Computed example of a mutant assay.
Amino acid sequence: MAPEPLVRIGFVAKRTGNAVSLIRYYANESLIPSVRTQGGNRMFPRSVIRRVSFILIAQNMGYALDDIRQLLQTLPDNRTPNKEDWARLSEVFNKHIAKRIAELTALKSSLEGCIGCGCLSLDKCKLYNKHDRIAEKGAGARFLLGDSPSDAVIK
């Protein structure tokens, strides 16, 4: 098998629609492979274009770079995802999407009511969260995080 052709960083940046600095950052973070020429210039396998696109898609879905790095490390030989890899990784993405849909649905239904934040500013919150008992469950909007309003009721 012939070695993959190498392309310049500017080509990768232009082809992916991103700044050269972002491509350099991804390379420095070991998210994409690069090689140095004798003159010190960075060159990239052409398949890095697909890898950068994968990273951007994952970031748009809310994944942190550490999470993306872990997903990419599941690929044999640190390669760019192929069709079979993408099918496997899409299952991970689909689970993430389903979880986000559930979270957003809960948020949508809770916007007019109590979210368990502890503010006690709404009349309804005084009923659900009298004396901020839900705070024992932890910080944040507890009802949106999955705690039930019944958890705040004194029994």
Rank of each mutant, 00 (worst) to 15 (best):
residue 127 L to T: 09
residue 136 E to L: 14
residue 43 M to Q: 13
residue 21 S to I: 00
residue 27 A to F: 00
residue 40 G to C: 06
residue 7 V to C: 09
residue 97 I to V: 14
residue 56 L to V: 11
residue 121 S to D: 10
residue 13 A to D: 14
residue 20 V to C: 03
residue 30 S to L: 09
residue 62 G to N: 05
residue 25 Y to A: 08
residue 127 L to H: 13
residue 42 R to A: 08
residue 52 V to C: 11
residue 64 A to N: 05
residue 80 T to C: 14
residue 2 A to V: 07
residue 153 V to A: 15
residue 8 R to N: 07
residue 49 I to F: 07
residue 143 F to Q: 00
residue 138 G to M: 07
residue 116 G to S: 04
residue 70 Q to G: 13
residue 147 D to W: 14
residue 110 S to Q: 06
residue 89 L to Y: 02
residue 1 M to F: 09
residue 98 A to Q: 15
residue 106 A to Q: 04
residue 33 P to I: 03
residue 128 Y to Q: 03
residue 63 Y to G: 05
residue 151 D to H: 10
residue 132 D to S: 11
residue 106 A to D: 08
residue 11 F to M: 11
residue 77 D to Y: 14
residue 109 S to K: 08
residue 92 V to R: 13
residue 127 L to Y: 12
residue 30 S to K: 15
residue 24 R to W: 05
residue 7 V to T: 11
residue 125 C to N: 00
residue 4 E to Q: 15
residue 46 R to S: 15
residue 99 K to F: 02
residue 65 L to D: 01
residue 154 I to S: 14
residue 98 A to Y: 08
residue 124 K to H: 00
residue 43 M to I: 07
residue 123 D to F: 02
residue 53 S to F: 00
residue 116 G to N: 05
residue 107 L to D: 01
residue 144 L to D: 00
residue 34 S to M: 13
residue 61 M to R: 08
residue 69 R to F: 06
residue 123 D to V: 04
residue 116 G to Y: 01
residue 150 S to Q: 13
residue 5 P to S: 12
residue 102 A to G: 09
residue 45 P to C: 06
residue 26 Y to L: 03
residue 14 K to H: 15
residue 114 C to F: 13
residue 99 K to T: 13
residue 2 A to F: 12
residue 73 Q to T: 04
residue 114 C to K: 10
residue 131 H to K: 01
residue 39 G to T: 15
residue 3 P to V: 03
residue 80 T to W: 00
residue 2 A to R: 12
